[in-house]
């Protein structure tokens, strides 16, 4: 049964991948293509966040710091020194991964909600610093020059190449996540999330593995930030370092399903679509109606499906298994009760 569910999962992912490859050919409207790019980019951020926030259970609300670092690093290198953005993007990722050690050093000594609050504080400090930093454009921000375009300079006049870039980056991030999930690191991260004291008793250096998760997460978040800069051609502290951005990364994961591979992708499809739809339909009023509706929908989802879309779906599958089991044989009643208990338990987590 496990193998059939695994095959189903592979089949579903292949269908999704095929759909992602076909979308640019089918979608002609520039605004819908832009929505698709936004979905992919938010999904990539959610998947990155999920490494430390989902698997390791360290809910960071300061990831915008890494996003901004990436965006600023590649843009400054390009603007000030003419460094190719491909190199700049990589440097931004590495810089964020290195600086995340300081981030982790200061925040990981706190647990749970206190950790989350500390991450907000660190990210706010970073934002204030960039707002005051004259060389980095301060509050005015930075423009990415359009003088050299094409794949070599990761700079395009049309949207389509950004779609491929966002898709490629998402796939790479997913592949790394998939590898982590299956390696011993993935097991260690889940152990740290479930029972940190017990994890230590079996030799897991929890500080080290939390930091490894944070550094990998920071690396990919920063690359997402660089991509944003190359796509929007303009960054300022508010657009790449705001706490709202950090919250969005966490929300995408939480709504989709924390600690699952595809949860953040599903979360991004739901959340980004709602966000953009409410903005286009209700955004013109200038009274923030779109934000109110957006927030209300998030609350509704969080109240009714606390385990996210993936958790909700798994619950349905479990219930179906349970029903077939009780229908086929009465003698298996006890085992199905155990499965039912597991399903209920899974729903509560």
């Amino acid at each position: 049964m496990i193998t059939t569910t695994r095959m189903k999962a592979v089949a579903i992912s292949l269908v999704c991948l095929a759909a992602a490859l076909v979308i640019p050919a089918v979608v002609q409207s520039a605004s819908y293509l832009n929505l698709a790019i936004l979905v992919l980019m938010a999904a990539q951020l959610g998947v990155s966040w999920n490494i430390v926030g989902g698997y390791a259970g360290q809910v960071s609300l300061g990831h915008a710091a890494f996003y901004g670092l990436g965006a600023y690093c590649s843009t400054l290198m390009l603007v000030k020194f003419g460094v190719n953005p491909w190199i700049g993007v990589l440097c931004g990722g590495l810089l964020a991964a290195i600086l995340s050690v300081g981030f982790g050093w200061s925040c990981f000594r706190l647990k749970g909600h206190y950790f989350a609050m500390a991450t907000i504080a660190v990210a706010e400090l970073v934002q204030i610093w960039f707002t005051e930093w004259e060389y980095g454009g301060a509050a005015v921000g930075l423009y990415v020059p359009m003088d050299r375009t094409g794949w070599l300079w990761m700079n395009f006049a049309t949207k389509l190449p950004y779609y491929w870039l966002a898709l490629g980056l998402l796939l790479i991030t997913l592949a790394v996540n998939w590898w982590i999930e299956r390696s011993y690191i993935g097991y260690y991260l889940r152990a740290i999330k479930d029972e940190p004291d017990a994890a230590r008793s079996i030799g897991v250096n929890i500080a080290r593995y939390k930091q490894i998760a944070l550094s990998i997460s920071a690396f990919f978040t920063a690359i997402g930030g660089s991509l944003y800069a190359q796509k929007e051609l303009y960054i300022d502290p508010n657009s790449v370092l705001s706490t709202a951005l950090s919250i969005k990364m966490a929300l995408v994961s939480i709504l989709g399903g924390v600690g699952t591979l595809f949860g953040p992708v599903i979360g991004s499809v739901v959340l980004t679509t709602i966000e953009e739809l409410t903005r286009t339909v209700f955004g013109g009023t200038g009274r923030g109606t779109d934000t109110i509706i957006y927030a209300t929908l998030i609350i509704v989802i969080a109240v009714f499906y606390p385990t996210g879309v993936v958790g909700w779906w798994r619950n349905i599958l479990r219930r179906r298994v349970l029903n077939t089991a009780s229908n086929t044989a009465d003698s298996e009643q006890s085992s199905s009760q155990v499965a039912g208990a597991a399903a209920v338990k899974g729903g509560q987590v």
């Binding site: 889940r190 029972e195 004291d197 017990a198 994890a199 008793s201 987590v349």
Partner: peptide
Amino acid sequence: RTFQIARTFSSM
């Protein structure tokens, strides 16, 4: 070591 409450990893 073991613990007074088992502290098994509940998601596994």
